[in-house]
Amino acid sequence: MEQKKLTELSLDELWQLFPITLTAHQECWADWYKEEAELLKERVPSIERISHIGSTAIKGIWAKPIIDILVEIPREEKLVNLKSTIEKCGYICMAENDSRIDFNKGYTLQGFAERVFHLHLCYEGDNDELYFRDYLQTNVAIAKEYERLKLGLWKQYEHDRNMYTFQKGDFIKQYTQKGKQLFAGRYDNK
């Protein structure tokens, strides 16, 4: 019997193969981000800003061992024009619309590779994730509260990423807004 490709698996099959797993913060995550960012800067033209986002960018909290990368490009570029270039860097397109394209790297038919990345390609200024990250980086108590929330949701939604993400939504919105107030203008376009 011929083995399916990742792109042919149903959502349920993908969630079984790639469950949510949380682990204590690993110092190597910052290095993995830096190495991947350098590769992307070399190969992907038009990067306005590239940033390490998500829980792996917040020291001291448990996280899914997946490096989230936000790549912002100038508004005059077209996201779709960079899609094949990013795919040539080993990424698989997972979702796309007019304002964002999401890619994964490190997903195999045997499960996760050692290094796993989620790349979020968007236009400059579409960067709320930076304010959330910065707020948690500067507020250890709130970062620990976020960690507790994630640990509480982990096993219940281990095979349902959509619900896991949904259940964190209000918390993320609340502290993104606080971050935007605290760091107003930090990431304004040049």
Results as ranks from 00 to 15, higher is better:
Ser10Val: 03
Gln137Arg: 13
Leu82Asp: 05
Thr56His: 01
Lys88Leu: 15
Arg43Ile: 01
Lys78Pro: 08
Thr138Pro: 07
Glu158Ser: 10
Asn189Cys: 15
Thr21Leu: 15
Ala24Cys: 12
Ser51Glu: 10
Ile142Trp: 04
Lys78His: 10
Ala30His: 10
Lys173Asp: 10
Thr165Tyr: 10
Asn81Ala: 15
Asp31Val: 12
Thr21Met: 13
His120Lys: 05
Tyr157Asp: 04
Phe132Ile: 07
Ile142Ser: 03
Leu79Pro: 01
Arg100Trp: 15
Tyr107Gln: 05
Trp32Thr: 04
Gln181Gly: 14
Ser46Arg: 10
Ile58Asn: 02
Asp160Ser: 08
Leu6Asn: 07
His120Glu: 08
Leu40Pro: 00
Lys4Gln: 12
Glu35Ser: 13
Tyr123Ala: 03
Gln181Trp: 14
Asp128Tyr: 08
Ser10Leu: 08
Glu147Phe: 06
Thr56Ala: 03
Gly90Val: 00
Tyr33Ser: 01
Leu70Pro: 03
Leu14Ile: 09
Val116Asn: 02
Thr108Val: 10
His118Tyr: 12
Lys150Arg: 04
Ser51Lys: 05
Leu109Asn: 13
His120Arg: 06
Ala143Trp: 01
Asn189Glu: 15
Thr85Cys: 09
Met94Pro: 10
Leu79Trp: 03
Trp15Val: 10
Gly185Thr: 02
Arg75Gln: 12
Asp134Glu: 08
Gly179Ala: 04
Arg186Trp: 15
Gln174Tyr: 08
Thr85His: 05
Leu6Met: 08
Leu82Phe: 05
Arg75Ser: 13
Phe132Ser: 02
Leu153Asn: 00
Met163Glu: 13
Lys88His: 08
Thr176Pro: 00
Ser84Asp: 15
Gly60Cys: 06
Leu79Asp: 01
Thr138Arg: 07
Ile92Lys: 04
Ile66Ser: 00
Ala37Val: 06
Lys105Pro: 00
Glu129Thr: 09
Val116Ile: 07
Glu38Gly: 13
Glu38Phe: 12
Phe166Asn: 15
Thr23Gly: 14
Asn81Tyr: 09
Ala113Glu: 08
Gln26Glu: 11
Ile66Lys: 00
Lys59Val: 14
Gly60Asn: 01
Asp126Gln: 12
Trp29Leu: 04
Tyr135Trp: 05
Thr56Asn: 06
Lys34Asp: 15
Ala141Arg: 14
Gly179Lys: 01
Phe171His: 07
Leu14Cys: 05
Leu153Thr: 01
Leu9Phe: 09
Gln177Ile: 09
Asn104Cys: 15
Lys178Trp: 04
Leu39Ile: 04
Phe117Asn: 00
Cys93Ile: 09
Arg115Gly: 02
Gly152Met: 10
Phe132Gln: 03
Leu119Tyr: 00
Gly54Ala: 04
His120Phe: 05
Tyr187Glu: 03
Leu153Gln: 00
Gln167Met: 14
Lys150Pro: 00
Asp160Ala: 06
Tyr123Met: 07
Glu147Gln: 10
Arg186Leu: 13
Arg75Tyr: 13
Leu151Asp: 11
Val71Lys: 00
Lys173Arg: 14
His120Leu: 06
Lys155Pro: 11
Glu42Leu: 11
Glu147Ile: 09
